[in-house]
Design a protein around this nucleic acid. Structure first.
Lengths: 206, 206
DNA sequence: GCATGTGAAAATCTTCACAGCA
DNA sequence: TGCTGTGAAGATTTTCACATGC
């Protein structure tokens, strides 16, 4: 292994590899070759090897990669090896789907708090999480929450983000399509279904 | 304008620009400069100008871009200028959130059918859409549906995709994290919240 | 004078081909 | 023999700087 600046694109792919490895682990596979993993995740084998080569000698020539070891290794790189307490803001349709989503666990994400501004929802329990008033957001700083998922309407996103940053949140995943302004040290990732969907027709053969 | 192969990354950004332009249109803005648009969408102005330059002379030097004209132009490039009938497969939490999602309209996406395999859901009406039995999927070919959104559990995704391809669907948006195998001419886009979220901790300053 | 459009340079990312180890 | 790890080549994408048009 040499020193390399790690490509951004590599970081984007690591969670995909991790997903594949977790699947293999469920099935009690012990080792996997880059070619096998390529078939599972839909990424070329040489791309996989190149990506891994940034981080050290993961695999054994002639054998492949050891599933459990690779999982631990990728988790460590992505800093997923310890729990991340996560707050959800906005308990609408999407918010409820997120609370019910079982896929966060294996990555160490744990939704520990949910907030809304609708009095009809505040105080209710959804999926075992108590819905709190958004006015209580600033108190998050005391609760070791470092990550937040924003699932509120467009116009409220910036305001919510400001409070979250103030409360010490380090990373934000948002579903509102608008760009929000945050300090440079805060990382924001956006998911917008319509924006992704909008690429499809371009690639669809008539 | 010259002939250029259009960069994939450019196509990825076009829906983001479109989103910004639609927002401006709502506010009755007539023209916009690349710098102004940059502030709204969070992408550099030179990147925006470069992207647009692939398609022809969109703007007027000294003035900027004409909002309505640019919207029409981008929609045309992305083939969003006509309606895309869309089917939803899987009416769980996520599926219901998608049916209630108001953001598809401006892009010309219209969910015209929903399917599930749960007898308790079949026949129910959700958000004005009748939930049909998945066994009726093959009949989609007669209904001019060219796009499908798969929101079913992991293990069912490949099977559903196979039927959809058979039924003539040209593009698939899926939420199941697994890679699925489809003919090359079918375009598949995946959204996986956990995979996106998993990148955050890496970038979060301790 | 203001803002676009674009060659050219720089940076980044992917692909290849194969040396070398188990 | 099978499969990794990686330098080097190739392709793509971003960034810059400025000529050009309104």
């Amino acid at each position: 292994m040499r020193y390399h600046k790690i490509a951004n694109e590599t970081i984007r792919r690591l969670p995909i590899y991790l997903r594949g490895m977790l699947f293999l682990s469920e099935q009690n596979r012990k080792t996997i070759s880059s070619q096998n993993l390529a078939d599972i995740v839909g990424i070329n084998s040489w791309q996989i090897r190149k990506d891994f080569s940034y981080f050290g000698d993961f695999g054994k020539p002639g054998v492949g990669y050891i599933v459990e070891k690779l999982i631990r290794h990728i988790k460590k790189i992505l800093k997923l090896d310890k729990e991340h307490k996560t707050a959800l803001i906005g308990v609408g349709n999407l918010g409820r789907a997120l609370l019910a989503y079982p896929g966060f666990g294996p990555y160490g994400f744990n939704i520990v708090a949910a907030f809304d501004n609708d009095p009809a929802k505040i105080g209710k329990k959804i999926e075992n999480i108590n819905v709190e008033d958004v006015s209580r957001l600033p108190a998050l700083s005391k609760r070791k929450v470092d990550l937040a998922i924003i699932a509120v309407p467009r116009d409220a996103a910036q305001e919510v983000a400001d409070v979250l940053v103030e409360a010490g949140v380090k990373g934000i995943l948002k579903f509102s399509p608008h760009h929000i302004e945050v300090p440079k040290k805060i990382k924001v990732i956006s998911i917008d279904i319509a924006t992704d969907l909008a690429r499809l027709p371009y690639y669809m053969s008539a």
